[in-house]
Simulated assay, not measured.
Amino acid sequence: MSTRIETRFAAVKAEGRAALVTFVMGGDPGYESSLEILKALPEAGADLIELGMPFSDPMADGPPIQAAGLRALKAGQTLKKTLGLVAEFRKTDKDTPLVLMGYYNPIYIYGVDAFLKDANAAGVDGLIVVDLPPEEDAELCLPAIKAGLNFIRLATPTTDDKRLPAVLENTSGFVYYVSVTGITGAATPDFNAVSQAVARIKRHTTLPVAVGFGVKTADHARAVAEGADGVVVGSALVETVRLSLDKEARATEKTVSSVTKLVRELAAGVRSGRPVAAE
């Protein structure tokens, strides 16, 4: 049986376009406003959603996502509450794939078995855990696969052909290609180099390849969509949340609408990025 992630990528491919993957931080700027944002994303044009698990030491993230995580933690967000967001989302949306993204420490503290059981019950489709390399697959990756969750791995510009098979070995759902070396949202990718890198990864796998880090505008999304199966946008969205908040970092009437406006623009960019017939 196909997973929600596989089904969605197949549907998008049949439309002859790339998927828009949107990242938002769970619990940012507060639980209720975070849920409102989450529920609004699919209608605005998000094909898949990555939901951040807030963590106090997010080493791969740039200032916007770090700040989003800290806002969420300050507002009382926990991993249990993040799973609660997923469960609430699933009450009205049974189809949009939802992936939890973050670091191993909160999962380790929660307890791997308990976490996988609760994630499954909530309706999580996959995990991206950025600080667990393939050498640590027994920690979480293999148990997650056994529990029926996709485990999505990151490949980077420094992942050479020798390293790639190890990265891909237990990866499922899609491959997340990090288009720049460094932290999230820090630089604009070289779109020509990205296209070449995606082609190289595809020589090693039949999985869809989604590209993220540094994609901020509809034009960026359009450029990436020409060579990738998916375009991931995160920092630009959490920065849009930040700019909509009041002086106490609380949501305002602009918060949800400013996020959905940007998602609509990005979706239009992705949908214009590859005017080709489906294979």
Score class of each variant (00 low, 15 high):
9 F>W: 03
197 A>M: 10
174 F>M: 01
240 T>P: 02
145 I>F: 00
2 S>I: 02
3 T>A: 04
45 G>P: 11
229 D>V: 01
61 D>Q: 08
38 L>A: 04
25 M>D: 09
198 V>K: 08
255 T>R: 01
35 L>E: 11
141 C>G: 08
110 Y>L: 10
201 I>L: 11
143 P>L: 12
58 P>M: 13
126 G>K: 04
105 N>T: 15
255 T>H: 04
34 S>P: 02
176 Y>G: 08
75 A>F: 04
72 A>Y: 10
254 K>V: 01
186 A>L: 11
95 D>M: 09
192 N>H: 13
77 Q>S: 15
18 A>G: 13
103 Y>T: 08
32 E>T: 14
202 K>C: 01
80 K>H: 14
147 A>W: 05
127 L>T: 10
98 L>K: 07
257 S>E: 15
85 L>I: 11
192 N>V: 14
118 D>C: 02
103 Y>F: 14
3 T>I: 06
101 M>I: 06
31 Y>T: 07
24 V>C: 05
199 A>M: 03
135 E>T: 15
111 G>D: 12
52 G>Y: 02
228 A>E: 00
220 H>M: 06
102 G>I: 06
44 A>S: 12
172 S>D: 01
217 T>E: 10
212 G>R: 00
144 A>T: 05
176 Y>V: 06
77 Q>M: 15
39 K>R: 15
165 P>M: 11
170 N>M: 06
252 T>F: 13
16 G>C: 05
238 V>Y: 09
153 R>K: 07
227 G>P: 11
15 E>H: 00
10 A>Y: 11
257 S>R: 03
154 L>R: 10
123 G>F: 03
1 M>F: 09
69 G>P: 06
43 E>S: 14
225 A>E: 03
48 L>P: 08
106 P>K: 00
224 V>Q: 03
116 L>Y: 06
109 I>Q: 15
136 E>W: 06
12 V>T: 14
47 D>F: 04
117 K>H: 11
111 G>F: 14
197 A>G: 07
219 D>R: 01
